[in-house]
């Protein structure tokens, strides 16, 4: 038996919004420690890694490890049927071929359940080693989203250049070029607005805007984001989901032809 309950359906909706741009379907691996998902987008350029801890749920039970392959468009249809403040319970029997979503309104006057067929998906797990990154940038997630949106008007790629002075985002194309520089801040009063850089050595890498913009769909999950870069490994964009887990996106860089 698997059963996971969240007081707010809105949180699950935000998690789904954060992955459905990149993935059409995904396998949710459930164990007694929580729910994990690792999947590449169809072009295998980026990878999504989601972790939701068992103790982040209001109720969590997983008697046997279970992999639930879900079509995310179908899951979106079902979650649209919930109000954000409805409680959601996700349930499945061991070896089940379907999953049930139960939505309960705050006053319990309305209870609805939706059953969805599960899919058998090919599991393609990648081994991702622990990496000591050359630089890790912590910044407001809204600012990162704004920068990606603004720069994608100029070109298909963004160059991210991190030095001890700060981080520079650049893009160029037919209409011209754009540069956004962020300096480290020391605003202790508003910690959530700070930009901080842990730098071992300067790094400059080029990334496709399209994927960065998809990653920023996770912005409603967290007011902070971290960007981790090293010269010869993919960028890691991480959003902590408060009290529940995290979502990480990996993006392979572009290289000079």
């Amino acid at each position: 038996m698997f059963e996971a309950r969240l007081v707010s359906s809105g949180t699950l909706k935000k998690v789904l919004d954060a992955i459905k741009d990149l993935l059409n379907e995904a396998s949710f691996d459930c164990s007694d420690t929580g729910i994990q998902l690792q999947a590449m987008d169809s072009s295998h350029v980026s990878l999504v890694s989601l972790s939701l801890r068992a103790d982040g749920f209001d109720k969590y039970r997983c008697d046997r490890n279970l992999t639930m392959g879900m079509n995310l468009a179908s899951m979106t249809k079902i979650l649209k049927c919930a109000n954000n403040d409805d409680t959601v319970t996700v349930k499945a029997q061991d070896d089940a071929d379907c999953v049930t979503f139960v939505f309960e309104s705050k006053k319990q006057e309305k209870i609805s359940d939706y059953e969805m067929k599960l899919m058998n998906l090919d599991q393609e797990h990648l081994g991702i080693p622990e990496t000591d990154f050359s630089c890790v940038i912590h910044m407001p997630s809204g600012e990162f989203s704004r920068i990606c949106r603004d720069l994608s008007q100029f070109g298909e790629s963004v160059i991210i250049s991190c030095t001890k002075e700060g981080v520079r985002f650049s893009s160029s194309g037919d209409i011209g070029s754009a540069n956004i520089k962020l300096a480290q801040t020391n605003n202790i009063d508003k910690e959530e607005e700070t930009v901080s850089i842990d730098l071992q050595e300067p790094v400059t890498l080029t990334f496709a805007c399209q994927y960065l913009n998809s990653f920023t769909k996770a912005t409603p999950l967290s007011n902070r984001v971290s960007l981790s870069m090293s010269a010869n490994v993919p960028l890691v964009v991480e959003y902590e989901i408060p009290d529940l887990g995290h979502i990480r996106y990996y993006l392979a860089p572009k290289i000079e032809e």
Binding site: H44, V45, E156, T206, A208, P234, A252, K254, E257
Partner: peptide, 14 residues
């Protein structure tokens, strides 16, 4: 704009 690398250029299937 450079050529795009993929996840398999960095990580292996397990």
């Amino acid at each position: 704009n450079g050529s795009q690398l993929g996840m398999s250029d960095y990580y292996v299937l397990i």
